[in-house]
Amino acid sequence: MMPPTEPRWVRYTLITVAMLFLTGLVVLPLLLVFAEALRQGLSAYFTALTDPDAWAAIKLTLLTAAVAVPLNLIFGVSAAWAITKFDFKGKSLLITLIDLPFSVSPVIGGLIFVLLFGLQGWFGPWLRANDIQILFTPIAIILATIFVTFPFVARELLPLMQEQGRQEEEAARVLGASGWQIFRRVTLPNIRWGLLYGVLLCNARAMGEFGAVSVVSGHIRGETNTMPLHVEIMYNEYAFTGAFAVASLLALLALVTLVAKSLLDAVLERREQRVP
């Protein structure tokens, strides 16, 4: 029996509505980024990208991701191990707290560090007395980025490791393996694709974060501007080629992340089919 379906005209109408919505809201903005970036020609595009301020922004963005992503990776693995391999009270509260940075506004992710390290903040007077500056330096940018990307790796690993259970690790333990050996030889091979997935998403967000970083950066050109902040400044100065050129790099990063994500999806699907 054919599965029941709608009349042909309903099907075509729904497909058209869905595709028009996606085109207007997603495809056109994406195309527009590249069209605007290349509008003045390739040489203007590369001039905009090799501008010293743009370069400084690219370097700061790479540095931020290079610090924030590994730290959140270690945190994510460690939280997932503690939560999925053991039973303890308050587990769901702990998971909710780990998720919290996802549900608060990114601006709050910046505000809290201003309230800690700003002049009127909790540590402000002490920092000033000791002549230490944290706010409006790359340190604050990195802290705010760690905050907003905090749950990414843990979130990917929790359901995965929960599903895999703990029998394999317990068997390894009974056979005399040490904790580190169990993790490296048993757990890691099981979770590596999920881990990679989490790292990819974490990295994309770390490089693209705008709200939290914008609050703590101080927008000092060449020093505390990340790529998204550079895009904002250029755009507000009507330097559209400069803004969209750097924006096109960020859009490329998003596209590469999505392609890698769908490749990983395919790998995971094939693995699931192989293991009954």
Binding site: L22, L30, G208, F210, E232, L250, L253, A254, K261
Partner: peptide, 19 residues
């Protein structure tokens, strides 16, 4: 089209904003 649905997740918000 299925892949495009994820773009708003992945595209940095400032880029989406100016676009």
């Amino acid at each position: 089209a299925d892949a495009l649905v994820d773009i708003p997740f992945a595209l940095p918000t400032a880029v989406a904003g100016i676009a």
